[in-house]
Write a protein that binds this DNA or RNA. Structure first.
Lengths: 257, 257
DNA sequence: CTTGACAACTTGTTAAGACAAGTATACATG
DNA sequence: CATGTATACTTGTCTTAACAAGTTGTCAAG
């Protein structure tokens, strides 16, 4: 019986809350692990039965919480031994998800410089080459062009293509400012859930070089991405051009196989 | 009561098998979806209760199977409606996982050209810059250098760094041929489970250009990666340099948030 | 001291049941 | 015709229970 991460008396979960109990348990455990990370190196979490007793929930519910932490790569589990926290990983910009929230999580200050918002009659060629789920027939799109900045330093030139039919009334929305994902959520109820992406290297041409404040011919990363909702609707096509100096795209904690 | 993907009579799962029942169910469903993908566009899977009755298992087991398919991005689920298959995505090389198996899954023929296998006293500088979990103190490593080929065309120059202490007796292993991951599994029981990576663009220098059969100054992608086991042991550090023409790194079906 | 049996843990798997909450359809009422 | 309601679905959440299987420590026998 060794010391573990749990304190004897623990705050309780609320059975009749907006969020399910297993999620409340997961969040409490995640907070515990963050606060006591430095101290204990490789101490096991309390066992599933102990946690069930502490939170006064069934073992199935505890397991749901632990499975969620496992999926996020925060713990690993060993049959016959216990569940252990995995070492911490620091944040970075992955090129997936909301640029705004990603940079904020990394501890920096995100901003965008609006460049353009126009209608186009087709997607760029590279989109068809690199990605699936791209319609072959020509459709009309809104094209929102922005320069993405971290701490007011330009790091990416980004074109976002939105199907005109899927975003009715977008003319009245304020796409020039704020997070596009927040607007998508708020006005049309769209929730980005999955992304498929392709990455290729390139060198900056004159226009890109000017936008990103780098030399012509400097190495850049071009990322092609299609973002879909949980229900498999395509929400956006994105072409991002990241500058290569001192600013790396990171892919965090990716499950293999 | 509309038509669904399930046939009336279904092959049975084996209760006392090596793999758990829920995995057998998941694999059967996955096979079903693949075979009948073209025909039915957006037909729901049978309901959880129907599947439970067909396979003669409990609903918990069916849900475990469906959750697994959901995690893999193969289906989505809607409360009150049902579970639906997501549209297919074709394969590509992600830079994670085994190069050998990835290229095979993409329908191409992988091969490696052995370059070098030497001892080094420290990791490259960029490893410390881009990745966490890199030891600060100097340690000794094996460095395996290979040129990765798809259909006998060179696409990547790759240096794999293995902690000498973690791979005893590696001198007697045949690292020059075959899949390194298969060797890791077979000889030391290591199973790669998670990868953290950073990506940056660069231009080819003389050595790289020769290995990859491209011009000096051509754009390339440098990928820094650390691969860990489920138990959070670091298995390898990898520096990969991918050529940029006509061969894109893809990141498949990545869950957001 | 070494070895093996055993007990007391751990997580993994499966069952059967219950209720909540969202969706869709048929149907009666206005 | 339009509208709301009842009903029969669906998945989401949670409980109690049991056994399987792996790891750890104790303890007695050799």
């Amino acid at each position: 019986m060794e010391a573990n991460l749990a304190s004897k008396t623990r705050r309780c979960v609320q059975k009749s809350s907006a969020s399910p109990v297993y999620r409340q348990v997961a969040e409490l455990l995640e907070r515990d692990m963050q606060s006591s990370r430095s101290r204990s190196e490789r101490t096991a979490l309390p066992s599933e039965n102990e946690l069930a007793a502490e939170f006064k929930v069934s073992r199935v519910t505890v397991r749901q919480a632990l499975d969620e932490l496992h999926r996020k790569g925060l713990i690993y589990r060993e049959k016959g031994r216990g569940s252990y926290p995995r070492s911490q990983h620091i944040g970075g910009v992955t090129g997936f998800g909301s640029f705004t929230s990603e940079v904020e999580n990394a501890g920096s200050s995100p901003s965008s410089r609006f460049v353009d918002f126009v209608k186009v009659s087709s997607l760029p060629e590279g989109m068809k080459i690199h990605l699936t789920k791209v319609p072959s027939k020509s459709k009309a799109y809104h094209c929102l062009t922005r320069v993405r900045c971290v701490d007011y330093c330009p790091v990416a030139y980004e074109e976002t293509y939105l199907d005109i039919e899927a975003y009715p009334g977008i003319e009245r929305a304020d796409v020039e400012n704020g997070s596009l994902y927040a607007t998508m959520r708020h006005l049309w109820g769209y929730e980005p859930a999955w992304a498929d992406a392709a990455i290729e290297p390139a060198v900056a041409d004159e226009a890109i070089a000017e936008h990103l404040d780098i030399k012509v011919g400097a190495p850049v990363v071009v990322a092609w991405r299609v973002t879909s909702s949980e229900q498999d609707e395509v929400l956006e096509y994105v072409r991002s051009i990241y500058r290569g100096d001192g600013f790396a795209l990171t892919v965090r904690r990716h499950k293999i196989s």
